[in-house]
Write a protein that binds this DNA or RNA. Structure first.
Lengths: 218, 218
DNA sequence: CAAACATTCTATTGTTTATTAGAATAATGG
DNA sequence: CCATTATTCTAATAAACAATAGAATGTTTG
């Protein structure tokens, strides 16, 4: 006979799956787009065997699904709610763990912890887009941009930023975004573009959060 | 220098804390009301030492806080969001893990998996309360009722159900609730009251979910 | 200040988990 | 059907975690 504790133990499987930095890295990568084991291994600096083991752990916990496509096995998140779950996990951690704040300010520069002071919120961005007063810049690699991006966003991967300045407007504010709150690419882009005289701020979320909120993507 | 992986590893601390059935049981208990280590140990069938160790794990993860009150140390959830986090975890698990469904139908009786067919949703309950067409019955122990309950709910702990039938109306539908989705007390109460001729259904959530949703409590 | 009590810490044991390297499996393209 | 390539499985080792009993700590109450 099943007991309440059996249920909680099964629930704990899902918690356990979230209890490893490597698995969270895999989930964050999968929030950008589905991908093969090899791609995921490269993106997270894991060996292929190890990545495969972690992905199976995630699959047993119901967080990802796998389908074979030719020679490759493609993994994807089972659900948009996984992104919501990770966002909530992040918010709880940021509110309650001093360690998180310390790491965030180290990673993003201590003058402006988290870059939150000058970041654009979702509501602000939506208002700006409605008015036509901002241009959206996606600084992720082309591959991830193609798998899905915010409406009307221009894609200039960070590597190629300085070679494609012509594509950027000088008469409107630019809002740059990337993979999500822990991704440094948009910070970097803002810094470099400001030195070149552009009016630019960063979006305080990333593509996965936008999509999970049910907002339109292209 | 801090790296993105350090952030994810710290986040994983929170995930890890959710990765044990015993810790989830402690969190569920704390969602009802704050409590001392001894109370928590008794409620979850852990030894005091073991409960203390798990509680410290939860505290390091920022999910609970501890304050001393006289001889006792009282633990409580840091945040209403912890309840939301557990609800989301549960929803993801129920959607994606076949094992969960199996256990739920075993625990709650297989005719009506989860009791969901005949359960009252939050919206239905709110409508019924507005109209005055339902009476609310809280079947949790008195202690938990006193720490907080739904507005105008009558408290009859499950043990004393048959001795306090006079307090229950026969001209209105009764809606029974207890600790939450995995708590069998309201199922049990509905079953027993129906045999006695009452018109009664159960609420498909519990006190913690109601409170976390920002609805009024007494 | 000392007795009583609740809680936490320590040390130990056994179990689970992560990682690596290398073998086995499965699917495609010639 | 064989060679190639991607992925998973296997085995071994090292590290992390859970549980228990008993000692130590800290607070209250007389």
């Amino acid at each position: 006979m099943a007991s309440r504790q059996d249920l909680l133990d099964t629930l704990a499987q899902v918690g356990k799956a979230l209890g490893s930095g490597h698995r969270l890295a895999l989930l964050e990568r999968l929030a950008q787009s589905e991908a093969s084991v090899e791609t995921l291994a490269n993106n997270t600096e894991l060996t292929v065997g190890n990545a495969s083991a972690h992905l199976q752990h995630l699959r047993r916990a119901g967080l990802v699904t796998a389908t074979r496509s030719g020679k490759q096995v493609i993994y994807r998140l089972t659900d948009e709610r996984i992104v919501t779950l990770m966002t909530l996990l992040r918010e709880v951690a940021e509110t309650n763990l001093a360690e998180m704040e310390r790491l965030i300010s180290q990673l993003f520069g201590s003058d402006d912890p988290g870059g939150s002071l000058e970041a654009v919120s979702r509501d602000d961005l939506l208002a700006g887009l409605r008015e036509g007063s901002v241009a959206l810049l996606d600084v992720r690699p082309q591959e991830e941009y193609q798998a899905g991006h915010l409406p009307d966003a221009i894609n200039i991967p960070l590597d190629e930023l300085e070679t494609m300045l012509d594509a950027l407007p000088r008469d409107r504010e630019i809002v740059a975004y990337c993979r999500g709150p822990y991704c440094v690419m948009s910070h970097e882009a803002v810094e470099r573009l400001r030195k070149l005289g552009f009016r630019v701020r960063r979006f305080d979320e990333g593509f996965p959060e936008w999509k999970a909120a049910g907002l339109p993507v292209h």
